[in-house]
């Protein structure tokens, strides 16, 4: 039974520290909104890219450390993560492009939205 599990307590607190720092940075950036980060990169503000990247870093730490994906077999790990990594960006790409297209139709077409 129950083969010896070494304690991961130190790792848990380190990860908590990382997640806290990232959240604090996000909130500070969200409140001051530095003018230098408002430039558009690939159709979106640089600040928003930073937010999304920081969020993915947080998601990585939660899934790998807290949900203990780092301890699972590689095959199991990727059978969970890969479908999400493929399907979600795919869906986001399609719908955001479509939303942008409809926006252009509304703003350049003969439709008045403000009356």
């Amino acid at each position: 039974m129950a083969h010896a599990h070494e304690s991961n307590i130190k790792r848990i607190w380190v990860v908590f520290g990382i997640l806290s720092v990232i959240t604090i940075v996000e909130v500070i950036l969200g409140i001051i909104k530095p003018e230098s980060l408002m430039v558009s990169v690939l159709g979106m503000k640089l600040l928003n890219w930073i937010f999304i990247i920081l969020t993915l870093v947080k998601a990585y730490y939660i899934a790998w450390a807290f949900m203990h994906l780092e301890g699972e077999k590689g095959s199991f790990r990727w059978s969970i993560v890969l479908p999400l990594l493929i399907l979600i960006p795919y869906l986001a790409f399609i719908l955001l492009v479509e939303g942008n297209y409809i926006h252009d139709i509304y703003s350049e077409g003969y439709i008045s939205w403000d009356f």
Binding site: P83, L84, L87, I88, L91, A92, L95, L96, E98, G99, N100, I102, H103, Y106
Partner: peptide
Amino acid sequence: ALTFSGFLVAYGFSRYK
């Protein structure tokens, strides 16, 4: 997770619109 991403992407769609 796919359900939630569907919601959030739908939010993104309307926001882009």
